[in-house]
């Protein structure tokens, strides 16, 4: 790893943005490296298609690169790049329409040690029940795609990505009350869709 790359790793997002605005492309590369995993997860959970996710991620960073000089710092870079990602994904979903192909990512083996997975597979009596991970993954994605785009967005940001209500309201440009009510409605719907996996 070069010294230049190592020096960017220690910088904050704000410092990297300032360097990128000054024309330092390595600074922007560091931002891409930092945000790719999170934004991939966001877009993938909204589209359930890994090829579309990779393409959209390219578009998101390309747009961010073209607009970086106009980023005024009124919000954090985190909120800004998330807003771009959500908006571009929602536009993509509107154009894609109802007929789409699901293309799922692999599930890492660490899931079996996940406390949440253990709780799901443990019945009330303490017995372990067999849960086909592949079936579970398929059912989860199908249930998500049955939600409306707005509901799917808040569930992805809150339940999967772990963002706070206040952060989500800034990203989406809606009130926290709207975020909470969308989450409440989405959880109720998902409970019906995922009945077979709920104890």
């Amino acid at each position: 790893m070069s010294e230049a790359t190592a020096s960017y790793e220690s910088k904050t997002d704000t410092e990297l943005v300032t360097c990128a605005q000054a024309g330092e492309t390595l600074a922007f590369d560091e931002l891409v490296k930092r945000y790719t995993p999170r934004l991939y997860g966001l877009i993938y959970n909204m589209t359930s298609n890994r090829e579309d996710t990779a393409d959209l991620l390219q578009e998101v960073f390309a747009k961010a690169y073209r607009s970086i000089k106009r980023f005024m710092g009124r919000s954090s870079f985190y909120t800004w790049i998330y807003s771009i990602s959500v908006n571009m994904t929602l536009n993509f979903l509107k154009k894609r329409g109802r007929y789409y192909k699901v293309s799922l990512d692999d599930v890492d083996t660490g899931i079996q040690n996940d406390p949440d997975f253990i709780k799901v597979t443990t019945a009330s009596g303490g017995t372990i029940r067999e849960v086909n991970i592949h079936e579970l993954q398929k059912k989860l994605n199908e249930s998500m795609m049955r939600l409306s785009e707005d509901h799917r967005t808040v569930v992805t940001l809150y339940d999967i990505q772990g963002l706070q209500h206040s952060e989500i309201s800034k990203i989406l440009g809606v009130s926290e009350g709207t975020v909470r009510s969308r989450l409440f409605y989405a959880h109720r719907q998902l409970q019906n869709f995922l009945e077979e996996f709920i104890n």
């Binding site: 590369d29 709780k119 996996f197």
Partner: peptide, 29 residues
């Protein structure tokens, strides 16, 4: 967390693999 939320959190284990980020950087450039 409710049972629904626990199930949803399991989606964090879905991912493109470790090589994805470096490949993505190259194709982006």
């Amino acid at each position: 967390l409710t049972p629904v939320q626990r199930l949803l959190r399991l989606k964090r284990h879905e991912g493109p693999g470790d090589q994805f980020v470096s490949d993505f950087m190259l194709s982006f450039k």
